[in-house]
Design a protein around this nucleic acid. Structure first.
Length: 422
DNA sequence: TCTGGGGTCCTAGGACCC
DNA sequence: TCTGGGGTCCTAGGACCC
């Protein structure tokens, strides 16, 4: 039996979320900016039509946006996360096997749906999700995940497809491969596209015609898997449960450049607390952590500074009480006066399941005490918000906090947002 | 003045061991 | 032509994804 996958992708997801609660934005150009209101990370179709590029720095297009009356939003991940859960719940009704691939994309296993009219089934999903959630989607169906991605892309692009494309007929697959540039394949980025062009390989079809050894030589085994999938041979399985993360990173740019160690300490303490909470959420402990400290990358190279410091822990931990002081200690070693710093962060690594933690022979055993305290903290923060309980060293965060000047209300998760919808 | 924040996997090369 | 051979572990760097 051959496999069958659908990829359901939300159109302009963050932009659509903002619009879902504000119908007056229908048909208007709208963009969502990254953290710190830095660059464009989502655009409505109308904004795309104005020529606003993905990743464009906000300051470069400010004039254009003002002139054209573009509605600008700071990113509101609380809202997007909640909308994403709503979409996923609808999709789960259409398959027993669902992979939540990202905040706005899911793969559906349709392996046992051969008897149904696929076109009709996909079209039903396409209609149902926006009706239930306000978020428009596109649906691509094919025999491998990579081809389903490709079908999804064409479903969005082609007027005739109108949001739904089922790609199972070999003739249709070949035509689709010929119509797709090599750099638009899932798993082939800009670097490889450039390299392949030097060999005269421009379309997905061209790539499928290469020998396995050629592909492996230039694109490693990862690229070979992609090519086999394009040829219709499934190599990438559905991931039903999210894999346990092997690293967890929490870092943010500062709202404005910082020169004082004490301000940066505040930021790093806050990031470390968030990072430790993420660790506990996946029930892991870290064996090591790395602290990153850097200036802006967009200034005179003589004024830039980028350094990191990795610290091995005596025994794996997820306790803030251990991590915060050690993180700050590492930061003080990294810090050089005289630079204008833009970002700091922590990455925890060497993660092991919390249940398998071995106690070091040389450290006093604070584990039980720490665990109890962390449990209490997690409970209180869940109930009262993650900033409800802070350490003194975190300060008030005024100096380093993100710029978010155009934040929409958290319509779905906060009282003031709910009232506004009413 | 102003340019995001997460992640993954693979490979090559060096250190070190027997 | 060939400085021995083979294994593991670690890190840095490069590619990719959203």
């Amino acid at each position: 039996m051959t496999s069958l996958f659908a990829l359901v992708d939300c159109n302009n997801f963050y932009a659509s979320c903002e619009r879902a609660f504000n119908p007056t934005l229908e048909g208007k150009p709208l963009v969502v900016l990254s953290n710190n209101d830095g660059c464009v990370i989502a655009r409505s179709n109308e904004a795309k039509a104005l020529g606003i590029q993905m990743g464009a720095p906000a300051f470069e297009i400010r004039d254009l946006m003002e002139r054209e009356g573009v509605h600008v939003f700071s990113s509101n991940y609380e809202l997007y996360g909640d909308m994403s859960r709503r979409v996923t719940m609808i999709l789960a009704e259409y398959t027993p096997n669902l992979e939540i691939y990202s905040i706005d994309e899911s793969f559906l296993d349709l392996g046992n749906f051969r008897h149904v009219n696929l076109e009709q089934h996909a079209r039903e999903i396409w209609e149902r999700v926006p009706r239930a959630t306000g978020i428009p989607v596109a649906v691509g169906v094919s025999v491998t995940k990579t081809l389903a991605k490709l079908a999804n892309r064409l479903a969005k692009k082609s007027k005739k497809a109108n949001g739904v494309l089922v790609l199972t007929d070999p003739m249709h697959i070949e035509a689709a491969l010929k119509a797709t540039e090599v750099g638009d394949i899932w798993g082939v980025g800009r670097r490889y596209a450039k390299k392949l062009a030097q060999f005269g390989i421009y379309t997905a079809y061209d790539l499928t015609q290469q020998t396995d050894s050629f592909v492996k030589k230039h694109m490693t085994v990862v690229g070979l898997r992609t090519v086999r999938e394009l040829r219709g041979e499934p190599c990438i399985e559905l991931e039903l449960a999210p894999p346990t993360k092997q690293n967890i990173c929490t870092s943010r740019s500062f709202g404005e450049p910082l020169t004082q160690l004490s301000d940066i300490e505040e930021a790093l303490a806050a990031h470390t607390v968030r990072c430790a909470a993420k660790l506990r959420k996946q029930q892991s402990c870290a064996n090591a952590f790395t602290i990153i400290l850097e200036t802006s990358r967009f200034i005179d190279p003589r004024q830039t500074y980028l350094n990191s410091r990795t610290v091995q822990l005596e025994s794996p931990t997820a306790s803030e009480l251990v991590l915060v002081p050690k993180a700050l200690e590492a930061l003080r070693i990294l810090f050089r006066p005289g630079f204008r710093y833009k970002r700091t962060g922590i990455l925890v690594s060497g993660l092991v399941p919390a249940t398998q933690v071995q106690q070091s022979l040389f450290e006093p055993d604070h584990r039980q005490r720490d665990q109890d305290l962390m449990q209490t903290l997690d409970f209180l923060r869940k109930r009262f918000g993650h900033t409800a309980l802070r350490y003194g060293v975190q300060g008030t965060g005024k100096k380093w906090q993100l710029k978010s000047e155009n934040l929409s209300p958290c319509y779905t998760t906060r009282l003031e947002g709910l009232l506004k919808v009413w």
